[in-house]
Design a protein around this nucleic acid. Sequence first.
RNA 1: CGGGCUGUGGCGCAGUUUGGUAGCGUGCUUCGUUCGGGACGAAGAGGUCGCAAGUUCAAAUCUUGUCAGCCCGACCA
Length: 435
Amino acid sequence: MTYNPTYLSDFPIKTLRETPSYADTPGYQYLIRAGFVRPASAGIFTLLPFGMKVISKIETIVREEIEAIGGVEVLFPALLPKEPFETTGRWEEFGESMFKLRDRKLSDYLLAPTHEEMFTLLGQEMFHSYQDFPAILYQIQTKYRDELRPRAGLIRGREFIMKDSYSFDLDANGLDVSYQKHRQAYQKIFNRLGFDYVIVSAQSGAMGGSKSEEFFTVSPIGEDTFISTPSGFASNVEAFETYDGRPAIDPKTGELLIKDGDLAKNGEPITLHRGIELAHIFQLGQKYARAYNWTVQNQNSERITPTMGSYGIGISRILATFAELFHDEKGLIWSTALSPYDFQIIQAISNDKVKETSFEIVKQLAKRGYSFLIDDRAISAGVKFKDAELIGVPQTIVLGNLIKEHKIELKHRATGSIETLTLDQLYSKFLLAGS
RNA sequence: CGGGCUGUGGCGCAGUUUGGUAGCGUGCUUCGUUCGGGACGAAGAGGUCGCAAGUUCAAAUCUUGUCAGCCCGACCA
């Protein structure tokens, strides 16, 4: 494969030396400073080139795993007419958290906070017979929710990228199968992304339906509280009751009524955690199909109502969460799975030999599909080292004085370790690895 | 929506109490020196002091209104 490296000398990026005062969490501060994102308005963000690279990688992993369970990609508009949401009652139910607007003819529109209505209508149009089931449709779309208080950068924005998929089945057993497929696909996704996660029982909220679970990662900046027990049971506090039937939250005040060591229904002591919700899967059941009077024919030519599931995963939130989880005092630390580049090449000195060598390294290692960010800027080497640490590409190749001996330095961002290698050693290390 | 706070060159901030020629750091431009760990010197560019109205000889500073943003709380991928 061919791969064009990115040269920082012609790259429209500017790292910031100081922390912008508006950024409230460390991950967000580094995403700003390292040039991954910029705020455009409260909870609304511009993705810069590095941020785009990471988003693309997240999307690729998500697409691969959803298509592996039979998902087919579509793309609905973000701008939708009011009517489908009136049918389900959600035009009112979402209330102020939904962006509503009018066109020049004064017709009502909305910026979609979620797409259950549209997927149901598409299913109704496409699926008429039991032979059309089961099915999984998904999209990666920008969602809009006018949150009361956006915070922590992309962790909770008013505009955010989400993958949402929807399963269509004929009965509850089929729905269970589709649900389990998604549950497993999500586990694969999180394993590939490199997140520790906990699957937590949840309530369904505005989506409706019955069974519902959330995927959390533990983080001090998390906005949600969930509980776990030694045997692996975990629950969102909203869906939790103690051994003696007490709710975890006062329904009126919202006050947390439980503490570490309280007993769960199974008699085990609980532990409370702060977490970031990265995904939420629901068994919607027939709520939406019923709202549109959608029925299909079974083998006996009887009309039956399909049953659906809805499965969301926050793409832009994953980017932000990774930054919150993986950084040190110098900057971000990307995993190989999500890093915007596989290697950053620092030209610590500037001469023709260095330029030729970086070109040669790219040519050799690109054979294995590795991608490169080359810092060829005409600035002092110190700035390049600092920026490399801020950006957080997992491996940096330093081209400097050792180039005379055909040697380079290979720096690991996460450990800070430095290896001195000949070019041949570099090539064999990465061309042979895993092949 | 309730409580707290902030809007001053790209970014970080001082100046507001006590009205009197808009400042510092960083970044940016140019030249020279330097150049493997955020170099040094010199010369520059860049600001409707969020916006509007008012008070005043005079407003970044005082008054009123308004907009935006941030933090804490109630809702959410």
